[in-house]
Every structure is written in C-alpha cells, then in structure tokens.
Amino acid sequence: MAKSCKFARELLRKLDRLEDLVVRNKSGNTAFCLAAVSGKLELAKEMIKVAKKMVEDENYGNLEMAMIKENENGNLKEEETNKKLKEEIKKKQLEEVEMMKNNGEYLAQVKGNWEMSPLLFAVLYGSEEMVYWLYYLTKASLNDADRIVLLLALITNGFHEFALQLLEEHNELATAYYETEEKETALHALAQLPVANQQGVWKRIKRCFNRYHTLQLLEK
C-alpha cells in the first residue's frame, strides 16, 4: 500500500496541466471516477491536492477539449440532437469548465459515464470510506434531485445508516421521488430489498416520514 501511494504521488507529480486530471477514457470516465469505483481513497485525495495546486498556478491546459463531450463519444442521448438543446448542453459544459478553473475540488463533481457522479459510483460499488469522504466534499453542491437519487442508491446498496443520516438532514426526502417513470420513493426502494436487509431501518425511516408531515402541518 505504501509503495502504491508513493507511485501515485510520483505519477501525479509528472502531470503539469489540469486537463490531464479530467480527461476521459473510452467509456467516458475520468481517473477520479475510477478511483471512486475502486475505493482508492488516498489516490483520490492526492488527485484533489494536485488539482488545487494546478488551479492555484493556473496550469489549466486545454480544459475545454478535455471536459466538453461531443456527440461521437456516445455520452449525449439520441433525443438531444435538437440544436437548441445541444447549445444549452454546451453552455452548461462551458460553465463546468469555468468552475473547474476556479476550484480544484470540483474534480470530485466531474461526472463520468451515464452522467454519474464519483459519489454515486462509490455508492454503487460499495466503498464506505469513499462514500463518506465524497459526500462531505461535495454536499454543498447537491441539489434536491441529486439528494433523492443519492438516497435511493444508498438504500438499494445497503448504506442504511448513511441513508438515515441523509434523512435526518433532509426530512423532506422521506416522501420525495425522482422525476422518472418509476417515481420511486425511499419506501419503494426499501420494500424491494430482502427482508433481512430491512430490519432496524423501517421504523427509523417511518419516523422521518412522520416528522416531515408534522413539520408540514406546523408550517401551515
């Protein structure tokens, strides 16, 4: 492990441009996304340190080329061929480039294949330490939709204590659902798990559910 960490630091030291950290492979994933998948927490931390130093030194390289996804790489959906919609996507991607230039920690928010964040990758592949670290690193940037998707992923993948913590922080998530055809809530996600995985979780989610409705009544 020590040798691996030393090699990672030496390798990162060879990089001199921010674009080297956000370049995607053929599958559409950055190296940071893959570190999240494999649970390589020390590597991810080193990458953030290097990114922050590059931002400080303004060693950006060609970030636009590295970060902006074109049609041919398969990341844009077929229905997004509409010219106006493509322009909106391009505008958003340019905004992400500027955010990357202003904050090295934004590396932890750069999405990979299937528009998945490193945090979601970590949840899906079961790296508990990585999940907690990425959550606290990126929680200020999460919007309502992000938190709903995160909650469902946490429940489905067995991070029930973390899911309960998220519900404590955001009681409204107890009844929220993501705007898809399925419209699944936390209860739907929980109900599909094996019975053994539900023990001790149901009562606490129900408590958050009741608390949310109580707060709703008090606000009226």
Results as ranks from 00 to 15, higher is better:
residue 1 M to G: 11
residue 1 M to P: 08
residue 3 K to M: 12
residue 5 C to A: 14
residue 5 C to F: 08
residue 7 F to S: 06
residue 9 R to V: 02
residue 10 E to F: 02
residue 11 L to G: 02
residue 11 L to N: 05
residue 12 L to G: 02
residue 13 R to L: 13
residue 14 K to Y: 04
residue 14 K to Q: 14
residue 16 D to M: 08
residue 17 R to T: 13
residue 17 R to Y: 09
residue 17 R to W: 08
residue 18 L to W: 02
residue 19 E to F: 00
residue 19 E to H: 07
residue 20 D to M: 10
residue 28 G to N: 07
residue 29 N to P: 03
residue 30 T to Q: 03
residue 31 A to R: 08
residue 31 A to P: 05
residue 33 C to Q: 01
residue 34 L to W: 04
residue 36 A to I: 08
residue 36 A to N: 07
residue 36 A to F: 07
residue 37 V to Y: 05
residue 41 L to S: 02
residue 41 L to I: 11
residue 43 L to N: 01
residue 46 E to D: 10
residue 46 E to T: 00
residue 48 I to N: 00
residue 50 V to W: 01
residue 52 K to P: 00
residue 52 K to M: 08
residue 55 V to F: 09
residue 58 E to F: 07
residue 59 N to C: 14
residue 59 N to A: 15
residue 59 N to Q: 15
residue 64 E to M: 04
residue 66 A to G: 12
residue 66 A to M: 11
residue 72 E to I: 14
residue 74 G to P: 07
residue 79 E to W: 13
residue 81 T to A: 10
residue 82 N to S: 09
residue 83 K to H: 09
residue 85 L to H: 15
residue 85 L to I: 15
residue 89 I to L: 15
residue 90 K to E: 14
residue 92 K to T: 13
residue 102 N to G: 15
residue 104 G to Q: 04
residue 105 E to M: 06
residue 110 V to I: 14
residue 116 M to H: 05
residue 116 M to F: 04
residue 117 S to N: 08
residue 117 S to V: 07
residue 123 V to K: 04
residue 123 V to W: 06
residue 124 L to V: 13
residue 125 Y to W: 11
residue 129 E to S: 10
residue 129 E to G: 10
residue 133 W to M: 01
residue 135 Y to E: 09
residue 136 Y to D: 14
residue 136 Y to V: 10
residue 147 R to E: 14
residue 147 R to Q: 14
residue 153 A to P: 06
residue 155 I to E: 05
residue 159 F to D: 01
residue 159 F to I: 02
residue 159 F to N: 01
residue 161 E to T: 03
residue 161 E to R: 10
residue 161 E to D: 14
residue 162 F to N: 03
residue 163 A to Q: 01
residue 165 Q to L: 12
residue 166 L to C: 03
residue 167 L to V: 00
residue 167 L to H: 01
residue 167 L to W: 00
residue 169 E to I: 01
residue 170 H to V: 02
residue 171 N to G: 05
residue 171 N to W: 01
residue 173 L to W: 04
residue 174 A to I: 01
residue 176 A to M: 13
residue 178 Y to T: 02
residue 180 T to S: 15
residue 180 T to L: 09
residue 180 T to I: 10
residue 183 K to P: 03
residue 185 T to N: 03
residue 185 T to H: 07
residue 186 A to K: 04
residue 186 A to I: 06
residue 191 A to T: 03
residue 192 Q to P: 00
residue 193 L to I: 06
residue 193 L to S: 08
residue 194 P to W: 02
residue 195 V to N: 05
residue 196 A to C: 09
residue 199 Q to G: 05
residue 200 G to D: 09
residue 201 V to Q: 06
residue 203 K to Y: 06
residue 206 K to T: 09
residue 207 R to G: 00
residue 209 F to I: 01
residue 211 R to D: 11
residue 216 Q to I: 10
residue 217 L to I: 12
residue 218 L to K: 10
residue 220 K to S: 12
